[in-house]
């Protein structure tokens, strides 16, 4: 083994050990708990009872499946809308220096803002006792603030979607701007001179060129919004309830037996995200093989 190779392996060993211990150790321990192994309460049997309870028991099944539906709805819609807003925003302003600088500034402010702060902002602005409701009532658009449409703490997760769209569109925007800038305008100009109109240039040139970056960013945003707890906890309702909130409530349960259900739910969330990521990589790989 050459000296360089040994150096690389040694320098990678300590960070890898930490990652493996914390990440895989945590996953492994969580998996054990989800399978009913809880030495703290003298439970040593390995079984799938917690998974069954969460998904199929009379008590939790409805909550789980509606929660899963809400999770998928919120994650897909917010990812799609955030990507779409960012894409059209980036395409619209990329050639104008002032708008580009202004939007970059706004989004740069948005990026470091914690999700929790944005969620609280949503309550202040969009709830029925919020700023928008009061202003609408003041100017006579609605009779009273309670006539304002329910946008936060609603059963469709609109407040949650709004929060994610606002937060994640900044992430998409920054990625797309950098991709569009690195691509330049030559491909579009070429397509234009070959007879492509505005829509054709978007459909046949821009979209295929940015799709790999857009898709990768979408996976990250989807995975985050699917597994995040704090925004649904603040802006969601008790039924239907998104899965991370449900999992957390299992953990908060004073009955330690419920911890297995909490862990099972967490593992299910992680599995769904992992399956989606695997599908994504499989699609990418098959595309590469095809090429």
């Amino acid at each position: 083994m050459s000296g360089d190779r040994l150096k690389i392996i040694l320098s990678l060993t300590s960070p890898l050990l930490i990652i493996i211990t914390l990440f895989f150790g945590g996953i492994f321990y969580g998996l054990l708990q989800s399978l009913g192994y809880q030495p703290a309460i003298q439970k040593y049997d390995i079984n799938f009872d917690a998974y069954y309870n969460v998904m199929f028991s009379e008590r939790y099944a409805k909550l789980f499946w509606t929660g899963l539906g809400l999770n998928l709805w919120v994650s897909f819609v917010s990812t799609f809308l955030a990507a779409a807003f960012a894409l059209f925003g980036a395409l619209a302003i990329r050639k104008t220096f002032f708008a580009k600088t202004f939007c970059n500034f706004i989004y740069s402010l948005n990026l470091p803002m914690p999700h929790l702060v944005v969620a609280i902002g949503m309550i202040f602005v969009f709830s029925q006792s919020g700023l928008l409701a009061r202003m609408s009532s003041q100017v006579g658009l609605i009779g009273s603030p309670s006539d304002f449409p329910i946008l936060v703490k609603d059963k469709y997760g609109l407040g949650i979607i709004l929060t994610y769209v606002w937060k994640e569109s900044a992430f998409f925007f920054i990625i797309l701007m950098s991709v569009l800038q690195s691509l330049g305008e030559n491909f579009e100009e070429l397509a234009q001179s070959l007879g492509a109109n505005k829509w054709q240039r978007f459909r046949y040139v821009i979209l295929p060129l940015i799709m790999p970056s857009l898709f990768s960013a979408s996976i990250i945003v989807f995975a985050f919004s699917f597994g995040a707890y704090e925004v649904p906890a603040l802006l969601g309702i008790s039924y239907p309830q998104m899965l991370p909130v449900m999992a957390f409530e299992f953990f908060l349960n004073p009955d330690l037996n419920a911890r297995s259900e909490g862990m099972a739910l967490s593992i299910i969330i992680a599995m769904i995200v992992m399956i989606l990521v695997i599908i994504y990589f499989w699609l990418i790989q098959s595309k590469i093989r095809k090429n």
Binding site: E189, Q192, S193, G195
Partner: peptide, 13 residues
């Protein structure tokens, strides 16, 4: 407009 001019450009790269 460019797309209707019947003028086609081959770029350097």
């Amino acid at each position: 407009v460019t797309e209707k001019r019947d003028v086609v450009m081959v770029f350097q790269n």
